[in-house]
Amino acid sequence: MDTLQLDQHISQQFNADLEHLKTALLEMGGLVEEQLADVIKAIESGDSSLAEKALIAEDEIDRRELSIDKECLTVLARRQPAASDLRLVMMVSKAIRDLERMGDEASKIARMVIALSEDGTEIRGNSELRHLANSVVKIVRVALDAFAHSDVFEAIKVVKDDKEIDKEYQSTMREMITYMMEDPRQISRVMNVLWMLRSLERIGDHARNVAEQVIYLVRGMDIRRTDLSDVERQLESKS
């Protein structure tokens, strides 16, 4: 069932509850997209007022996370949803966490932009930063679209594109390291760019999480970490 058929329940209220969860998640996603767009404009223009705006947006995003979380809990308690309804509630409750984290990362970038703009000088790596930022903005949008349309193909695309972003992040990072080696006076500024790149890359990962959740929602399939040896490697790296 590719469409979620949220209007088909015997209980109209249940229809409304689930519809609202879906809308609320998309609205929260919209806020994150907007915040991210502001942050990126701020990077391009060095305009710290846009960065300030992004910082304010974070508060609203956090509030949304709490209220949607509460709604999920209420639906679980009152309706004991099953099958696709259950998957929707679980998916939403996980996706809001990812969106909230995206908001956090965007705010981190905003703070860097403010710090850099106070510094006043043009920083090396700006073009790389912009390039990665545009890729990340795109997959965030596609992930939310995939959710809105229950489209697994779009979701798969996000997973694939995130892989490309990870590669791009690595090669950009190598470049940044080269800059620092060439001119040690730039280290502290390039470090700031590195942190921004890192945040962008993390936002891409959260977009991928959302996309993976969309696949779970639509198909009931968990594609996260399906490689066992990879799980083992992760366990080792954490121990």
Partner: peptide, 17 residues
């Protein structure tokens, strides 16, 4: 020396999967 490497970098790529 590189503090930026995300733990997610060690996750399976799509091809691995």
């Amino acid at each position: 020396i590189n503090p930026m490497l995300g733990d997610n970098m060690q996750q399976a790529t799509l091809d691995d999967r």
